[in-house]
């Protein structure tokens, strides 16, 4: 018999990988965004290599935002959310497991795709490594912050836009330190580790706080 947590992770993972799940959609959206930028700013290699990390980060942020609105809403619509309350697993832990599965299904593919898309943006090897490292550390924070927005808008029909408005301002710190650490990887005035460790700290803080905030929102809105 699988443990409740393992079963929940497996279920979320399967749903994300099936047709109509959010797994592949995020990567395709990421690819599209990154491809569009050179058309808008022009094909100047110097400019692209300078703004490349920022483009990759913004695209990763928007791509992960795309999948959030179904995180709890799908469960609320089919009644699973009520039943998740009834399990012996605390709701906070269930939220954390859902976030972990969501990140594994939508965040990890973005990180895998990022170096290939970085090549299109004239990124050097060290810059690519910097972007991958910062995305690896930073995207879990995006997922966890997004979970609060998804939980707060769970009863709002078509709440995707409202959720984006709620979540985007909260992700600004992640974006600032993510981009500055990836830029510091290729040289600059600050060493790589100072913005990178702040990014790590943000993710850890999000890990500690966001499941409680999201579970509180779900409890309150379930009434």
């Amino acid at each position: 018999m699988t443990s409740p947590i393992g079963a929940l992770f497996q279920r979320e993972w399967r749903i994300a990988r099936r047709v109509g799940g959010s797994g592949a959609m995020g990567v395709v959206f990421f690819l599209t965004l990154v491809t569009i930028v050179p058309f808008a700013v022009g094909p100047d290699p110097n400019l692209l290599s300078r703004i490349g990390p920022a483009i990759l980060w913004i695209a990763a942020l928007l791509a992960s935002l795309l999948a959030f609105d179904r995180l709890f809403q799908a469960d609320a619509e089919d009644g699973s959310l009520d039943l998740l309350h009834l399990g012996e697993t605390p709701l906070e832990l269930a939220v954390l497991v859902k976030c972990a599965a969501h990140w594994a299904a939508t965040g990890l593919p973005l990180i895998v795709a990022a170096p290939f898309l970085g090549l299109m943006l004239q990124q050097e090897t060290t810059a690519l490594a910097g972007v991958v490292a910062t995305l690896l550390v930073g995207t879990p924070a995006l997922t966890l912050i997004g979970a609060i927005g998804a939980a707060a808008t769970v009863t709002v029909r078509r709440g995707g836009l409202l959720m984006a408005l709620l979540v985007l301002p909260l992700t600004i710190p992640v974006l600032i330190f993510g981009v500055s650490a990836s830029e510091a990887a290729t040289g600059g005035t600050v060493p790589f580790y100072s913005p990178f460790s702040i990014l790590c700290a943000i993710t850890l803080a999000a890990l500690a706080l966001c499941p409680f905030a999201a579970a509180a929102a779900l409890r309150h809105l379930g009434e």
């Binding site: 018999m1 079963a7 279920r11 399967r14 047709v19 089919d78 009644g79 998740l84 012996e88």
Partner: peptide
């Protein structure tokens, strides 16, 4: 924690098979 709650919503995922859905609830509940 001792109760089953059944309302108008079925609590099942359309993308999963009946067996996968029930296996999940068996493990979770």
């Amino acid at each position: 924690q001792l109760a089953h709650y059944l309302a108008h919503a079925d609590g099942m995922k359309a993308a999963l098979t009946v067996e996968e859905n029930l296996d999940f609830w068996a493990a979770y509940l």
